[in-house]
């Protein structure tokens, strides 16, 4: 393997490799780390962030950013809990419909006016959180999940893992096929890599961007709904800073923040990596969970520096 291939492999699969290494080291260092219960807890608690990160991966590869997903996650949860009084179907469709509309609006504004995604989705972040507070009486009303079937969607288990884990896995696989093996996926890469060239190559730039933001919002809403099902209520104080966790996971997973390169596998690995770091710090008894953020932050910085070096190494060949 020459240097160019090596650096490319590292860029694409570095997160998976680090994740594997960390799991092995953790297992050797702490007896209580490599237990089925701990593994299940890491995987289950990561699944919601993973669903959001899948959508974020599309957005970032297309050269954009979506800051509204944390707010949409909470809104999705509150709407699902509220809707559950009318049955499972409403509990699922209500958050998807509302979040989908928010994503559509954001996507249209970004694609049609050329405004910066950062600003548009920052407005989304603030507006959606306000909307959530409005329907929950400033957060005073917590809707409880009334529908048992819907609650089971978040709480039911197969082989010791709850349903959201399987749902996440199916979504991740579908997203991989979508990104790698369809025209839409290629268009997302092309726009993020060189928007002007993509337009000249016949890529429907505006439409693709709208789809990407709709997808991201739908996935955030779905993650919120599943989380509400798991908690049996629409908790209003969640999701603050979640968009940043999702961005961090995607970048740690090897997707370039400037767009044009990256993948779903990396993002899922990035999410798990954040979960494993948290779990490991919990194992070191006398450290508070605040250290998890310090370590995650350092790790993110390292990844960004490494990516810079790797892409330089590729250019030199």
């Amino acid at each position: 393997m020459n240097r160019e291939q090596l650096s490319r492999t590292l860029q694409q699969h570095g997160a998976v490799m680090v994740l594997g290494t960390l799991v092995i080291v953790g297992s050797l260092a702490f007896d209580s780390f490599a237990t089925p219960a701990n593994a299940a807890s890491v995987v289950v608690s990561s699944s919601f962030l993973a669903i959001i990160a899948i959508g974020m991966t599309f957005v970032i590869i297309s050269g954009g950013i979506d800051l509204s997903v944390g707010s949409l996650f909470v809104l999705g949860g509150v709407l699902a809990a509220y809707g559950s009084q009318y049955g499972m179907l409403v509990a699922l469709l209500l958050p998807l419909a509302v979040c989908g509309v928010v994503g559509l609006l954001q996507g249209l504004v970004i694609a049609r006016t050329g405004m910066a995604p950062f600003i548009v989705t920052l407005a989304g972040l603030l507006g959606v959180r306000g909307l959530m507070l409005a329907i929950s009486d400033e957060g005073a009303t917590t809707y409880l999940v009334k529908d048992r079937a819907f609650a089971a969607l978040g709480q039911g288990e197969i082989l010791g893992l709850s349903y959201p884990v399987y749902i996440t896995a199916v979504l991740a696989l579908a997203a991989m096929v979508l990104l790698q093996r369809t025209g839409f996926g290629q268009n997302v890469y092309a726009i993020g890599g060189n928007e002007q060239a993509a337009a000249l190559m016949g890529v429907p730039v505006a439409r693709t961007k709208v789809y990407v933001y709709v997808m991201s919002a739908l996935l955030a809403g779905l993650a919120g709904a599943l989380n509400a099902a798991r908690l049996s209520s629409g908790v209003t104080i969640l999701g603050i800073g979640l968009e940043l966790d999702a961005i961090a996971a995607v970048v740690i997973g090897g997707t370039l923040l400037t767009g044009g390169a990256g993948g779903i596998t990396g993002s899922v690995a990035g999410v798990l990596l954040l979960g494993v770091i948290q779990s490991l710090i919990n194992q070191v008894g006398n450290l508070t969970s605040a250290f998890q953020q310090v370590v995650s932050g350092l790790f993110l910085a390292l990844v960004v520096v490494a990516q810079r070096l790797l892409s330089k190494a590729q250019r030199l060949t």
């Binding site: 096929v177 093996r181 369809t182 025209g183 290629q186 268009n187 890469y189 092309a190 890599g193 060189n194 002007q196 060239a197 993509a198 000249l200 190559m201 016949g202 890529v203 370039l256 044009g260 390169a261």
Partner: peptide, 24 residues
Amino acid sequence: NLVPMMSVARNLLLGREPRGRLGV
């Protein structure tokens, strides 16, 4: 005027990729 980070083949065939089963 191509997309530098995409592979050579995908740049060449963007929009006209050969499809297999299920349109993939």
